[in-house]
Design a protein around this nucleic acid. Sequence first.
DNA 1: GTCAGTGCAAACTTTTTGCAACTAC
DNA 2: GTAGTTGCAAAAAGTTTGCACTGAC
Lengths: 162, 162
Amino acid sequence: MEIEDVKDTVKQIFTEYLKMNGHRKTPERYAILDTIYSIDGHFDVDMLYSRMKDHENFRVSRATLYNTIILLINAKLVIKHQFSSSSQYEKSYNRDTHHHQICMQCGTVMEFQNEALQSVIENTKLTRFQSSHYSLYIYGICAKCDRKNKRKKKNNNPKKEK
Amino acid sequence: MEIEDVKDTVKQIFTEYLKMNGHRKTPERYAILDTIYSIDGHFDVDMLYSRMKDHENFRVSRATLYNTIILLINAKLVIKHQFSSSSQYEKSYNRDTHHHQICMQCGTVMEFQNEALQSVIENTKLTRFQSSHYSLYIYGICAKCDRKNKRKKKNNNPKKEK
DNA sequence: GTCAGTGCAAACTTTTTGCAACTAC
DNA sequence: GTAGTTGCAAAAAGTTTGCACTGAC
C-alpha cells in the first residue's frame, strides 16, 4: 500500500472514531495524525513537537499533542512504548508486526521481524483475559557497543566497568 | 530453595559484585537488597521506600534507593520494567521466567508462565546482538473490567466510552 | 451561540544532581 | 586519612491540569 493511501485510510478511521465518540474534527488533530504517519519508526512527544514546527510548519502545544495521542491510541492508530524515560510511540496501522531489541548500553532500539515468534505469541491462549496487542522487548548489547567494549578491555586497565 | 537461602545467595552475589567493581559494602545497600527479596511481585521506588521505613524500620533516602537499584540491575539481581508512569522493578534471582499481561483499563499487571512461549523466545537467534534478558507484555482487558463494561453497556446509555 | 478543544503557564510526579556530612576501607 | 556514599534539597525531565480564548458544530 502506498503511503498516501495509508494516510487517507487512517484519516477515515480517525474521522469515524471522532464521530463515534462525539469529538470534534479539528485541524490540529488531522495535522498530528498526518505527521505521525510520515514518521518511520519510533518517536516521542518532543520529537513530534519539533517535527511539526519545523517540517510541517504547523505549531501545536505539547498539551494538544498529549491529548491527541490518547485519542489515537484509543482509535488503535498509535501504539505506546515505554522503554526509555520518555514514552515512545509509533504508528500502528498497516505496519508489519515486529519486535524490539534494546541495547542496554547505548539505548538504541532496533526492530526485527520473526514470523515464528509472532505466531507463537499470537496463538498463546490466555485465561480470563482479552488480549489486544503485545510488545516483546529483548535487552542486550548491540554489536557496536560490544566491539567498543572489547577494544576498551584490550587497551585499558581491566578494572572499572564504568 | 528456601527464601532465607535465596537471600544469603544474593547477598554473596552482591558482595562479589561490589568488590569486583570497587564499591563499598554499606548497610544501606544490604538492607535494600534484603527488603527487595522480601517483596513478592513488582514494586516501585515509592513502595520500597515506605516498606523499608515501616516494615524494616530502616530509613534510606530515595536517592540512595535509585543509586542502589542501578547497582542491583547491573549485578543482575533486579529487573526493571516500565509499564506504568513510574518504573517498576522485581527481583530476578531464582525467579521463574514469566510474562506479563497488563489490563489497559485498570492497569493491573498479572504474571503468567508458558514454557512453550519461553523456549521459543529464548531460542530466537538474533544477529549482531548479545541478548541478556527479555520482557513480553501482553495488553488487553482483564476479566474484571470486561464484566464491568458489559454490565455498564447493558444498563446505561450506550453512547459514551469513558 | 455553545461547549469541546486549544495554548499557555503553572502544577505535579518521578528521577537526577550538587553539596556537605559521614563512614567503609 | 580519603575517597566513595548518603541525605537533603534543589533541579531537571516528562506529563497533566486550570483557565481564558477560540472555533467546530
